[in-house]
Design a protein around this nucleic acid. Structure first.
Lengths: 216, 216, 216, 216
DNA sequence: AATGAATGAGCCTTCATTCAT
DNA sequence: AATGAATGAAGGCTCATTCAT
């Protein structure tokens, strides 16, 4: 009788170690040996459970994504209205007291950079982003429906909110101290409020400014 | 008869080659040999003009930043009002027909990821971001002044607009095809309009949603 | 079932290979690749067992020192008196028929030169020299005690004998053919005899010479 | 009319710069560029005046040797007797207040190590040593003649004194703090006195020790 | 004579991956 | 499953030497 496989735990253990190493060193500089050490395992074992180093990154990507989706889900459940779900999505990412694991944030940015070059990472990245935006989009759609808005804008609205969050993350990570304390969440809430309220195209501006916008 | 120095041109030549290589391979995978080949130079020459590979990255960073600031400046000059300058800043980054060098965009994301780990890259990143946000902030401040708004919000507003742009860039690079065509610029314009119009804190929302925001 | 470690043997194997390579090429010109080849190993393996090339040198230094101390010990055991131990120390280094591994001698000189510049090598060098001189000193002290001499001179006497040996080694290595055959050991024995017999300061000389020594 | 050649000065200037660089870095690590910088010259100029880096080392070797011979000569002139010249030779190297340029000492040891491997350096080393020992030998021979000693021992005596000095130099350089203060010169004087006084073979020792010496 | 750029080989080191046990 | 040694390919960087000016 063979001993029960512990492959799944080991894979998780290794992927989690990679999170910590990538967070502090980036993917390229995260050596397999270092990841093994971080996981408390022998160096050779990593390649017993994963064919390539890249596969560890992909596993880590999935774990990060799953955990993050969970987190979003948990925050959403407290919301009672569609708009509430949108608000919860934003707060879950940016509200004070909602600070996520800094390692996860660093990894996310590393994954973004990696996705630019590697098709496999890009695929996982795309899947993750689509899942997240998808959740947001459904909340936006419901809200727009309740308000009688144009449902076709839901995707654009969700994307905008997501992009803003993503941008704050990047700034926060790479240029800390630049974002006025407490300004991120309110700003994205304003964005959401604005986009839910009226057609995107109708940008409020002082008349004189109208012309300057006609440039490209 | 001292030989005239061509160091500046060479450094520029090498930094420009690094832009192309980093764009397609990332910094870590951009080998010095490859950069030299891309520049049409012998491998050893790179280290004659730069002490470390990192210094090439920093030079490239400065060139990208300078070029981008130039670009922003050029777009701004057409604007006749403060708000126009804000609009120009957004359009310069996101409007259709404003597509920047894709290589520059890829490099920017690579630099963001690198800034997370390397203090020197972070310093340059910070400088670049502050210069960009600074320009935006002054426009925002002028506009708020004209509207009688709270000038202290200028920085937060500028940061929000910048973050949104940054987020769109990341999404565009890593998950192309996800952003509804033509939605980016209008969304950020909406954000700007919304933030210029009223205090950030006053988020318009349906009453019921108020509670859901009160979360953990 | 953990694989049994062979690190100690490998390290010894590599350090021994370095002895041979340093002997014929010096430390700087002893490339890691060459050392590996000499040891019959793959190049990368050296850095699996040693962090830096310098660490191989230090390991080699320790092996040389240990072997040499052993050798001195073995020669000393035949001596029955303290003076006999001093004589044995000298003969062990310089007597005909006592020729040591020429590679070891070449390495020792290389280590001397390296010690001038590198603190780590210097530390090992210092330790080796102190151990050797220490053994000699204890023999000298015992002999001086037996003769009723000044024990405080023991260190100086031991150092003098050691320096003379060291000097002969250097000459032998760098300018072979210069030392009259068979003159080294007797000369150092004369030195030892002279220093053991009377206070160092009392140098026998013809009266007239006394002045010439009073010079600048 | 061509401008007068300054080649000799330049060569000297470069060789002197190499002394300083070799003293602090050793020959292998003394890069041509660093030597040029130390000399305040352009990098390319070194290879205009010297074909190979090794030739700079050889030039430096000659300069060091010449300067040192000069120094020995100067010290000797004050001596009025042959023995006085021997004493002066020792004091010139080891007496307190006779400290030579530490850079020269470091270079000498570096040259010793280099001589082990390179035939050209060895040739120069041999020449230098023979010149120095030769001067010493002639003084020894004169003294032995005056004493009615065996003139054939002159070379061996001179070599012994020189070896002892050389050994003290090595110890001083590589293991500073090991030599009891002020003990070097007296010890070598004792050696000289002892060797001038009686046949080398007749080593004074307590009877019991006689046997232990019969080992090899 | 002199300059400083250019070349290309070689070195130490890192590392993903494989393998014997 | 697991271990730790082994392999070989790069990579960044240094540097002696050459060359155009």
């Amino acid at each position: 009788m063979p001993r029960p496989s512990n492959t799944d735990e080991r894979r998780a253990q290794i992927a989690d170690a990679m999170i910590r190493v990538v967070a502090r060193a980036g993917y390229e500089r995260a050596s397999v040996a270092e990841v093994a050490r971080e996981a408390g395992l022998a160096a050779g074992l990593v390649h017993y459970h994963f064919q390539r180093k890249l596969d560890v990154l992909l596993a880590m990507q999935e774990r990060l994504t799953a955990a993050h989706l969970d987190r979003v889900e948990r925050w959403s459940q407290r919301a009672k209205t569609p708009e509430g779900r949108v608000r919860a999505f934003i707060d879950c990412h940016l509200a004070r007291g909602a600070e996520e694991d800094p390692a996860a944030l660093a990894c996310w940015i590393a994954l973004t950079a990696e996705a630019l070059r590697d098709p496999e990472v890009r695929a996982g990245y795309d899947r993750a982003v689509r899942a997240l935006i998808g959740r947001l989009e459904s909340a936006v759609r419901d809200e727009l429906a309740a308000r009688g808005g144009d449902l076709r804008r839901a995707r654009a609205v969700a994307t905008a909110v997501f992009a803003a969050i993503q941008g704050y993350y990047a700034l926060h990570g790479a240029s800390p101290g630049l974002i006025p304390r407490g300004s991120a969440a309110p700003a994205v809430h304003a964005l959401a409020g604005s986009l839910l309220a009226r057609p995107i195209a109708a940008i409020p501006s002082r008349p004189v400014a109208a012309k300057s916008r006609r440039k490209s």
